[in-house]
Design a binder for these strands. Sequence first.
DNA 1: CGATTCCGTGACGATTTGATGACACACTCT
DNA 2: AGAGTGTGTCATCAAATCGTCACGGAATCG
Lengths: 239, 239
Amino acid sequence: MLIVEDDAAIRELLTLHFEQAGFRTAAAADGRSALQWLAELLPDAVVVDWMLPDQSGLALVGRLRRDARTRALPIVMLTARASEEDKVRGLEEGADDYVTKPFSPRELVARVRAVIRRRRPEADPRPVEFGGLHLIPEVRQASYGGRSTTLGPTEFRLLHFLVTHPERVWERSTLLDRVWGDHVFIEERTVDVHIRRLRLALTAIGAEGFVQTVRGVGYRLAAPQGDDRSLPQEAAAIG
Amino acid sequence: MLIVEDDAAIRELLTLHFEQAGFRTAAAADGRSALQWLAELLPDAVVVDWMLPDQSGLALVGRLRRDARTRALPIVMLTARASEEDKVRGLEEGADDYVTKPFSPRELVARVRAVIRRRRPEADPRPVEFGGLHLIPEVRQASYGGRSTTLGPTEFRLLHFLVTHPERVWERSTLLDRVWGDHVFIEERTVDVHIRRLRLALTAIGAEGFVQTVRGVGYRLAAPQGDDRSLPQEAAAIG
DNA sequence: CGATTCCGTGACGATTTGATGACACACTCT
DNA sequence: AGAGTGTGTCATCAAATCGTCACGGAATCG
């Protein structure tokens, strides 16, 4: 989740709420930093303020839509103007939804969730990879070291989400929201079952140990065995 | 748990189910009684029917959101209308989730649980460090000089607290409050046991001497070098 | 030095949590 | 209709974790 907003107070407010909602969040104060950040990573969605110091948020949205790499990014615009005209221009430029100030952070989070849900991962046909584990959405296939297998729709979505969001732990409830959809009613334990089916399928192609359990919390995807490997950059250099 | 629902039959049905699910439950037939009740107590969450006799449930939700005291209350709306518009209006007004009739009581309970869970602030996922001792909350892992180990939930919380509040002594009762939670009834000596388990885990990765005992007071985290092995007392050179 | 307080330690039972296998239901394809 | 898939739920088993306790050593004090 990338937040592009020049007002520091609002930026922090949003960061707080999105992190509480289970999103990993980054923030940029202007369009340029946003683009820089996006050059490195692709977030699940972008929240863009209409008014930005260097470049209007609208222009940023247009630019993101013209770049093939960022074209599929869900975008929610944040605007003080409630006029119909602005809404139309925002949506024309390519925003998926918009929220007018003053807004409740809760509503924004809900809208972002909805926007992400509409753009389901399986809709993205690009192959993804993590640690030698390759996913090909078009055929719902996972391959590892030459061997490959076809997964069921749910298992594939689950694995796809994990591969595109690796290393960190996901609570069952969050997985239900992000993989199944945020308005489904399913027992949390069901996640366990699908994790197991996923593990079985992965084991069958020799990709064992990727899906890891964090007791009392949830699951995560990570390289097998990697226990004492390098730490996240933050912890790497402290002195 | 507060249920605001005008239909007596549904009200009792819901009360029954929520109590069976372990919630202490109160019910109100209209917005006014609900507000009266809320003036006295704050529940874990509120379930509000969309249609209420005196005042629409939507208005009640808006009112709860505008009052600072009730602003943080998780709210689940109950509605017969399944239209997208109603959903949006409900979310805009500040509901956290909604369930459309006909609904299964089990689903409602599950959603309320989920909403309460989301409200619960997540633990800070950022890695922390002290004296070469690194903590990675996402995997509940502690590492020291290349070696790492996974801690149990309680041990990790305990160590996390100590690492983020090092160098000072903590009484057992304070640790119980800050690590276990404010209103837990647990023997103070239990802290000793967890300290021991923590020490064992740390020793296993070579991080010995971090957790120090201050006799008659409690425990503290400090760098192993200047420990009490060489110095008779904690007489620091601060003068 | 003896009495007393305080802490470390090992063990144990109870509870919580995850893994697993079985099963029922909905859907699709033949 | 019948077979086959995919999915969600449940009961059960196994493992992890937790809180207590009792014992004994260590520190403290008179």
